[in-house]
Simulated scan of single mutants.
Amino acid sequence: MKKVYLMMYDLGAGHRSTANALKTVIEQRKLPWKIHIVDAFKEIIGTTAPHYVYNNLILKKTWAKIINDPLLVPSFKLQIQLSHFAWLGRFKKFWQQHQPDLVVALLPYTNRLIYESLQAVCPSVPFVTVITDHADCPPHFWIEPQEQFLICPTPTAVTQAKHLGFPQDKIFCTSGVVIHPRFAEPIKVDRRNERQRLGLDPDLPTGLITFGSQGSKVMLEIADSLEKSLLNLQLIFICGRNEEIANILRRQQSRLPRFIETFTSEIPYYMHLSDFFIGKSGSVGVSEAVAMNLPVITDCNALSMFQERPSAAWIAENEIGIVVKDFRDINQAVAKLIQPENLRRYRANAAAMDNRAVFEVVEILERVLENSFLEATQIVRV
């Protein structure tokens, strides 16, 4: 059995969901690999401080987003630089103990650290970085100038890699961001009946509102704005682990039919019941929505996290939704989107994306592991 290490961290849910998606396909294909999903900060460096800051401040607090780019991100990068040699020793010890056959980075910031430690202990082991955002955010985010394979979800990311000097035989382009294969599976339930079972109208336009695994108070603002509008629709709220937001929504009186759920593994089911998606422009979340043929409404402004801004650009460029400057414009965006001709066009554009990335990445990793690089370049065209 080959030992394959998928390196991630639980800052948000996207990195772990990517790892779980790849593991699922690897197991479905019965490849002779032993998969290890490793939270680099928690299990190797021995800290969960970045998890707390990101999950409990950046994702939930507006004031934290204001200082994210000018203060928190530079501070985080500085900490990585100052701790490089100390952390390098911990990674080297980890590789000495585990002796991997393939290492795959599903996380930004620490890829230089992972690569250098791997080179020091197991220099023949291939190192692959799978970019899980729609583009890199240089410097020292996803793409580091080192000997590695890069798996890019968009032509934009491919262009960035080439500009940084990566040869074409080290770059692979997939059909999108990796999402779980269940988003490609048919859901055999009757939408009208299921809507009624949840207390919803079987025929009203239905919006799914979610802001990732930690939720956000922005959901309350969106709910209030739509409540005061003249729009005739209904809403499904997925609040993640944010019980506070869920409880507030449940206590509110609403003229619009609504269903409130907390953290769930049934996102494809709720997307199947919906007509459009409202949420932050996280690469995995919007890609899941598009895979379910849901047009997306998201925002992009100075408070948007820099790694999510390329996702908003991707949505606008491919005409698979509407990007607003601020969710205070949500009423106008929803009114425009649910016009029948617009909704049909956006849904058709979403259906045309055909994201097969999770399967493509596993095929690429298989070729890399077999040292058949030429064959790997024929899987997907850069």
Rank of each mutant, 00 (worst) to 15 (best):
V296Y: 08
T298D: 09
T298V: 13
T298Y: 07
T298M: 09
D299T: 15
D299H: 11
D299Y: 07
C300F: 06
C300K: 14
C300A: 13
C300Y: 04
N301K: 09
N301I: 13
N301M: 11
A302Y: 01
A302V: 10
A302S: 12
L303R: 09
L303E: 08
L303G: 06
L303D: 07
S304D: 08
F306P: 06
F306C: 12
Q307P: 05
Q307A: 11
Q307K: 05
E308W: 00
E308P: 04
E308C: 08
P310E: 05
P310G: 11
P310R: 04
P310D: 06
P310K: 07
P310Q: 06
S311D: 01
S311E: 02
S311G: 03
S311M: 06
S311I: 02
S311C: 10
A312K: 00
A312P: 03
A312R: 02
A312M: 04
A313I: 12
W314V: 04
W314A: 06
W314T: 05
W314D: 01
I315N: 00
I315T: 02
I315Q: 00
I315C: 03
I315V: 14
I315Y: 00
I315P: 00
I315E: 01
A316I: 00
A316S: 13
N318E: 02
N318V: 04
N318P: 04
N318D: 03
N318A: 04
E319W: 01
E319L: 08
E319T: 11
E319D: 09
I320E: 02
I320G: 04
I320S: 03
G321P: 10
G321Q: 06
I322C: 02
I322W: 00
I322T: 02
V323P: 03
V323F: 05
V323W: 04
V323Y: 01
V324P: 06
V324G: 03
K325P: 04
D326S: 15
D326H: 15
D326C: 14
D326R: 09
D326A: 13
F327P: 09
R328E: 12
R328D: 13
R328Q: 15
D329I: 05
D329G: 10
D329Q: 15
D329C: 14
I330A: 05
I330N: 03
I330F: 01
N331G: 12
N331L: 06
N331Y: 08
Q332V: 15
Q332M: 12
Q332L: 14
Q332F: 08
Q332S: 14
A333H: 09
A333M: 10
A333P: 14
V334H: 05
A335L: 11
A335F: 05
K336S: 13
K336M: 09
K336Q: 14
